[in-house]
């Protein structure tokens, strides 16, 4: 048979037993796979790939998707309080995009043989990770601006790298996401500048938010290279193309001047520009705290998970009702109107 179903089940159904993960046949396939990556070609869902490649991608993409979804909460909290109609519209659009990004990323992960439902169940059961930064609180409106500039800025540095990665569906999702993220940074910087150039009270509010978000932004890139167990494999297979520390440096070089230029300070006594290297020197975040928050002991872990679980539980009857309704309908599939523009 030439053709076979790949989408009926989320998992591509192999017709034979899965190929062995060792031995000469495996070595040959691995060599071919790695040569393809070395040539700069993308890997597509139906291609052969080492199980470890699949596993690492599922881990990374699902974490990334969860981060987008959980990341809707700290900023979404301020939608009701946005201080102008324009800011309200922008913030709704921005948080909506994050949901959209989560949707695209879950879909990219689904091409690797896991369902969105399984990923969401894992998140709600507390078994999946998401970016530590979203476990920090947003006590003022200025936190929205700080997130918009620093966290989105850090996310873009990271995502521009991921868009170069070797897995086709992930790289394609990233390209689209990066495009929308550039709007996020613009709006974040705009809100940031409005406060930094505003009344003394607004400036102070902005400064305090910068103090809260500087180190979380540095944490967004993950643990230092010396502690990052996954990095060498991820680099070899071009799942990542730069290390955590390289990306962190890139972020500081780009964003520290944007904060300092407005006369605000960054809570790091060691921060200074080194004209010899052309880079900014900075202190690392408190990695003890990082691991603590990852393990679930951050200021808002419980609150974030409770909000997600509540939405999931309260929405269950809706999902079930529509599934039941769809089952009642005699569903012939298309409406025969594909040639007619319009819904």
């Amino acid at each position: 048979m030439l053709m076979y179903r790949i989408h009926g089940q989320a998992v591509p159904v192999p017709e034979q037993a899965p190929p062995p993960q060792e031995g000469p046949e495996y070595e040959a396939r691995l060599a071919e796979f790695e040569a393809r990556i070395a040539r700069g070609e993308k890997i597509e869902p139906t291609d052969w790939m080492p199980e470890e490649y699949r596993r690492q991608l599922i881990r990374m993409i699902s974490q990334h998707a969860h981060s987008e979804i959980v990341g809707m909460l700290p900023e979404g909290k301020w939608i009701p309080h946005a201080p102008t109609l324009r800011r309200k519209l922008i913030l709704i659009a921005k948080v909506q995009d994050e949901g959209g990004h989560g949707q695209l990323l879950y879909r990219a992960a689904e091409t690797l043989g896991i369902t969105r439902e399984e990923m969401i169940e894992a998140l709600l059961a507390g078994k999946a990770k998401y970016s530590v930064v979203f476990n920090y609180p947003t006590p003022t409106w200025a936190d929205v601006a700080a997130i918009g500039l620093l966290i989105d800025g850090a996310a873009v540095v990271n995502q521009l790298m991921l868009a170069q990665g070797s897995y086709g569906p992930y790289a394609r999702a990233m390209k689209r996401i990066c495009y929308e993220e550039s709007f996020h940074i613009k709006q974040g910087y705009d809100a940031f500048v409005a406060l930094a150039t505003g009344t003394p009270a607004q400036r102070q509010m902005m400064q305090e938010a910068v103090n809260r978000w500087w180190y979380p932004a540095l944490m967004l890139f993950g643990p230092p290279d010396r502690d990052s167990v996954h990095t060498p494999t991820l680099l070899r297979w071009r799942i990542k193309t730069k290390t955590n520390d390289e990306l962190r440096q890139e972020f500081v070089d780009q964003y520290a001047p944007m904060v300092l230029r407005l006369g605000l300070t960054i809570p790091d006594p060691n921060l200074r520009y080194n004209p010899e290297t052309g880079h900014w020197q900075f202190s690392e975040p408190d990695w003890e705290e990082f691991w603590r928050v990852i393990r679930g002991d951050g200021p808002c872990n419980a609150e974030r998970m409770a909000a997600r679980r509540r939405a999931h539980e309260e929405g269950r009857w809706v999902r079930e009702a529509l599934a039941a309704k769809a089952a009642q309908r005699t569903n012939g599939g298309g409406n025969g109107r594909y040639a007619v523009a319009g819904l």
Binding site: L2, M3, Y4, R5, I6, H7, G8, E44, T46, D47, W48, G333
Partner: peptide, 8 residues
């Protein structure tokens, strides 16, 4: 599930 694809 209506999509049939060629095998890699």
């Amino acid at each position: 599930e209506a999509i049939y694809a060629s095998r890699a």
